[in-house]
Nucleic acid binder design. Structure first.
Lengths: 139, 139
DNA sequence: TAAAAATACTCCATAGGTATTTTAT
DNA sequence: ATAAAATACCTATGGAGTATTTTTA
């Protein structure tokens, strides 16, 4: 089972119609039909009652529907929360001299921003004496 | 994103090692490597710190890990609950005569068991008179 | 009969594999 | 020097498409 199965199932269960669901999903009707049969086979259960009057969910289908919606919501939430966690949440100001940048600072900066994209670097090139003054002004 | 991405991510996050995770998943190491990069690209975030001293999760990785475990649990739960909902939960005893079986009963039985696998049919062939007696005995 | 689902194929995108290189300690 | 991850490339499974048939109210 993959999320695709769950997404297609939820669309079909909502629309109560494979053909309509295939339109909202931008795929062809046979794809839904085949994939949902695959799902039913994997779960060893009939999920839909295919009637000309429209699709209906079996008790098993209803059960799966409840869980499926929750899973899709969780996935959205996971993506959103993870993206947020990776966003800028703090700034790090660094006073530096050009020689440090060439020797080691560049490498460190690259690693830091790669591994911690949530930290935004603000670089200030200044002579060591000015750096001390700047630090004292912060504190 | 598919469940595959989440499964591989969780394995890698648990083992803190792509190679070991690939063994537990019975796939090759490059497959995990490629798929998890794909995931990071989709989420537009770095999830792992690849260090020789071992893998580590970034804050974003930790966030995704929490959600990912929950999603996989929900999936297992969904499958289990759905299978249970489709299981036999009730028996339906039907007294019948052979002619009914040939004319319509067979078709009805087929549909019923297909659409409601949770109902177990118990068929009793008996003359109409006996059917009435049997019904009275139940009530 | 008509509308929807199922089936039969074809195709190609991509998951997965092997071999190798790169990286970092 | 070494262990692990990344890269390059290849193969093949199966996801997706079109055309058609089957079902059922």
């Amino acid at each position: 089972m993959e999320l695709r199965h769950i997404r297609y199932f939820v669309a079909a269960a909502r629309e109560r119609n494979f053909t309509k669901a295939s339109h909202t999903l931008n795929i062809s009707q046979p794809v839904i039909s085949r994939l949902l049969r695959e799902l039913e086979r994997e779960l060893d259960t009939v999920l839909f009652l295919r009637q000309r009057s429209g699709l209906d969910l079996t008790p098993a289908g209803e059960t799966f529907f409840q869980h499926a919606r929750r899973i899709l919501n969780d996935c959205e939430e996971a993506v959103k929360a993870t993206k947020e966690a990776g966003h800028v949440r703090s700034k790090l100001s660094i006073g530096f001299i050009a020689t440090a940048l060439a020797s080691f600072l560049g490498d460190i900066m690259r690693k830091l921003t790669l591994e911690h994209p949530e930290i935004e670097l603000v670089m200030h090139e200044m002579p060591p004496g000015d750096q001390i003054v700047a630090l004292r002004n912060i504190i």
